[in-house]
Write a protein that binds this DNA or RNA. Structure first.
Ligand SMILES: [Mn+2]
Ligand SMILES: [Mn+2]
Ligand SMILES: [Zn+2]
Ligand SMILES: [Zn+2]
Lengths: 144, 144
DNA sequence: AGTTTTCTGAAAGTCATTTTCAATTTCACT
DNA sequence: AGTGAAATTGAAAATGACTTTCAGAAAACT
């Protein structure tokens, strides 16, 4: 089942309605490569759908996060970002504090160790955030 | 050099001034066990120093973070928290999303692996955040 | 088609944080 | 100790991301 069908299913189960706005937002969001804030996505959408309001984009992104199509990201700059969940491909992030570049990484050994840590504290992990902040190769070379 | 001297040094180097408010805030902050928001610390301080304003507490906490006496924490609840840095004792956090309990952990093997990851991407880490969200033992037992 | 329920967009509200500004305090230099 | 430039303070206002409100529009069920 693709993510459009998945979203429709979710809406139906929750007694929510399928609207053209929601479909347009989902479609544009899935095409995004980067990590969009509500504002980012709203501005992109304005080109093809100038009538869609900011609040609707925001509400839809929250719905997408609820049904597992999007993940919410917080890189500490006061803006929530969203990215499409890729099929069972969890990853975490390296964030360049000079140029804003975001690099994705996945390291199963870290994921394992963090499960061990949780077990040691009788803690059940529902989600996690692991972010490395610093300088990317390009910025390190420039600011040397 | 203790942290009070360290702060005075920092102020001096930056051409900033040593004030009674800053000292009172630092002193109270260092006595804190928990992870204080600006609001938390402001309220604690009011007891002994009812004249100190919210903005001053906020500004001082940022200074403390700048000079390495405090770390800023963001647990995604929309409030920045601060905790005193303990001498070379880095740790990360488990956060119970039911009761708000914060458990500290440190796992050198994770810290190592994250350095390896950074190297693989020619990335220089300046700081990182690693937070595990879920249920603590008590809440898991209650909400079973 | 009619009815009920949910949606939408614009505007207003919320809340942590940040800025402004006039009065006060600090501190380097006499 | 006194002077004066520069930084600080607290209260209030401003900011900005996010959330809510609400009246008209659209969707879904019968
Ligand atoms: Mn991870
Ligand atoms: Mn760590
Ligand atoms: Zn960079
Ligand atoms: Zn708990």
């Amino acid at each position: 089942m693709d993510r459009i069908a998945l979203f429709n299913d979710y809406l139906h189960r929750q007694g929510l309605k399928n609207t053209s706005q929601r479909m347009a937002i989902l479609e544009r969001f899935l095409r995004s490569k980067s990590h969009y804030s509500t504002e980012d996505l709203y501005l992109k959408l304005r080109k093809d759908h100038p009538k869609i309001g900011y609040a609707t984009v925001h509400r839809t992104l929250k719905l997408l996060a609820e049904c597992g199509i999007a993940v919410e990201l917080n890189f500490g700059d006061g803006q929530t970002r969203y990215e499409p969940v890729k099929a069972d491909q969890h990853h975490d992030h390296l964030i360049c504090t000079s140029c804003g570049k975001i690099i994705e990484f996945s390291e199963p050994r870290i994921e394992n160790l963090q499960e061990q840590v949780a077990r040691q504290h009788d803690f059940i992990i529902h989600s996690h955030r692991h972010e490395l902040y610093g300088q990317c190769a390009k910025c390190a070379a420039e600011n040397r």
